Computed example of a mutant assay.
Amino acid sequence: MTADRAHAVIDLNADLGEGVGDDESMLTIVTSANVACGFHAGTPAELLATCRAAVEKGVRIGAQVSYPDRAGFGRRFMEMTSHDLIADLVYQIGALEAIAKSVGGTVSYVKPHGALYNTVVHHEQQADAVITAIRDVDPGLAVMGLPNSEVLARAERSGLPIIVEAFADRAYTPEGILVPRTQPGAVLSDSDEIARRVVDLATSGRLRAIDGSVIGVSADSICLHGDTPGAVEHARAVREALAAAGVVLEPSEPGKR
């Protein structure tokens, strides 16, 4: 998405199928669903129900892959060999593809979850493993991640389409990376503030960092967390504010910048 487009277009995504939050309501708001694959959360029945509901509502499906860490909800870093990580990711993508297919849907992209998502921003070995797994399953699958991350750089070099993501309810550092959840102010809680930030991002490509400075943030898709307090209210406020600003809401075309 270019910042100065006359009619901005943005995709709204949310993490679903995790057995927490109000997935039914979120699927009436988002245009893409990052569906858990069972390694950090979600049962086969929950994943099937989520994919079925996404297909019924015309929401794009993505595979949200994770470390094998249900006890920690996938939010703990794990040191893994490339062989083991690739195998785990192939397993998860393949499982969700079969589930989606069974209800008339398809998996269009892959988004790492939690600690894996943050790790592959800079961890070259694990970023390579993610790309290898995705390419081995289906080189047509897009990769969703943060701008300037190792995983997206490797995806582009491998010929995989990419979806650049930003976050509606997370604070950013002046360097343009997410403030760790362990720090004060990392997660935003005011619906109006979140909506204003997303409109600024979608229409100007800029955000105010946690220190008050204004930074450039490129994004094709904006993540609306579905498991935080007030998540549905935040998401509705964001969608309404974007519509009022004339922003078109639809799944982004991977690789189209």
Rank of each mutant, 00 (worst) to 15 (best):
T43K: 04
P254T: 02
F77H: 09
D4R: 13
Q183F: 11
A235E: 02
R208F: 10
V248R: 15
A244R: 04
E175V: 11
N34S: 00
E24P: 08
V137A: 05
G94M: 02
L48Q: 15
R52Q: 04
H225C: 00
T31M: 04
R157L: 14
R75M: 03
R206A: 14
M1R: 15
G105S: 02
V35R: 03
G205Q: 05
S102D: 00
S252C: 14
R208T: 13
S213T: 11
A3L: 15
D169E: 06
V179M: 04
R208G: 11
V90H: 07
I222E: 07
E79D: 09
M1G: 11
T119K: 14
Y117W: 09
P112I: 09
G105L: 02
D211R: 13
D23I: 00
A202T: 03
I61C: 13
A100V: 00
I61G: 09
A209Q: 10
D227V: 01
A8Y: 04
L12M: 03
T81Q: 08
V137N: 05
P254Y: 02
G205Y: 02
S149H: 14
M1S: 08
L141D: 11
S82V: 13
A202R: 04
P139C: 02
M80Y: 15
E233A: 13
A237F: 01
G105M: 02
V9T: 14
S108R: 10
Q92D: 06
G205D: 04
H113Q: 05
T203Y: 04
A186G: 00
L116H: 11
Y109M: 13
R135P: 08
D88Y: 14
L249T: 05
L224D: 07
G205F: 02
V9L: 09
V65Y: 10
S252G: 09
Q64A: 11
E253L: 10
L85M: 07
H7N: 12
S191F: 06
A33F: 06
A244D: 03
R154M: 09
A237W: 01
E18C: 05
I162S: 14
A166V: 12
A244M: 02
V247C: 00
E150K: 11
F167P: 03
G159W: 02
L89M: 05
I215E: 15
D138W: 05
I215P: 12
S25F: 04
V20Q: 13
I10V: 08
R170F: 14
E56K: 07
D211I: 09
T43I: 02
S82N: 15
I163Y: 07
N13W: 06
A209L: 08
L224T: 07
T81D: 07
G246F: 00
H113D: 04
V65H: 10
V59E: 05
S204F: 11
L160T: 06
P251S: 02
S218W: 13
S66R: 05
A54H: 01
C223E: 05
D23W: 01
A171I: 08
V214A: 10
R239I: 01
S149L: 15
V248Y: 15
D211S: 09
A127K: 08
R197N: 12
A168Y: 06
P174D: 08
P44F: 00
D192Y: 10
T228W: 09
A6E: 12
R181V: 05
E124F: 15
A14N: 00
I194E: 10
R170A: 14
G104P: 01
S252V: 12
T2C: 13
E79V: 15
G185F: 01
E250Y: 13
M78L: 12
D192F: 15
Q92W: 05
Q92A: 08
S213D: 08
